[in-house]
Simulated scan of single mutants.
Amino acid sequence: MKTIIPLLLMAILAFGCQPTDNMVSAADKKALLKTTQAIRDGFARGDVPAILALHHPEVIKYFGGKNVVIGREAMKKGLTEMFAHSKMEFVDHELESLVFHDNTAVETSIFTIKVTHKNGAPPTLAHGRAMVVYVKYKDSPTGWASIREMAQEAP
């Protein structure tokens, strides 16, 4: 009996310290989901300014190997070049995990992007998994901005 009491106390403390959706305001969760949708919508429109507005100035995106994009200006350059040659549309976005901690949120998801080439080549599909870190950011239209992202080919 003496052994069970400390174990119960540890379990209560451990589970009591875990972040839950109940600890996140409904407004914060709604604003973050609006942010992720707005980014996908911006891609569908090829709207570089809208996409950039939802990314922190110090954003870093890791796409495997040496493919690393650092900062909004590098994003702007890459997006502008990409949209000059193709249209990109998220045709699937499956949320795997969403965790909030203070002014930060971390999302993992599986996605599929349809790439339509402007040169008439057949469209292609790209499947991936991403982990995106968002921070509350007053200059974002939704109040949240992507600050770190890692993407890889989906399994």
Rank of each mutant, 00 (worst) to 15 (best):
L9Q: 12
K77G: 05
A53D: 08
M82I: 06
Q18E: 14
S25A: 10
E89C: 09
L9I: 15
R40N: 09
A26R: 10
T35E: 04
R45G: 04
G71S: 03
A44V: 07
G64T: 08
M82A: 13
H56D: 13
P49F: 11
I12C: 11
A27C: 02
E94F: 08
G16S: 06
H85W: 04
L32E: 00
G78A: 14
K29E: 08
V91T: 15
A44Q: 11
A50C: 07
P19I: 12
T80M: 15
K29V: 01
V48I: 09
Q37P: 01
V68E: 05
A27Q: 13
P19S: 10
D47L: 03
V59C: 02
E58G: 12
F15K: 03
M75P: 02
D47W: 07
H85E: 10
L13T: 14
L13R: 03
H93K: 01
N67T: 14
E73K: 01
S86I: 03
S86D: 04
A84S: 14
K87Q: 12
L13I: 15
A11E: 02
P49M: 12
I39M: 02
M82E: 10
M23D: 10
F90N: 02
V48Q: 02
K61W: 05
T80H: 10
D41F: 03
I12V: 15
V59L: 08
C17Q: 14
M10P: 00
A14C: 12
R45V: 08
A11K: 11
S86K: 07
F90L: 04
E58K: 15
K76L: 06
I70L: 11
K61R: 12
M82W: 07
K77F: 15
V91C: 03
V59Q: 00
D92N: 09
A38N: 09
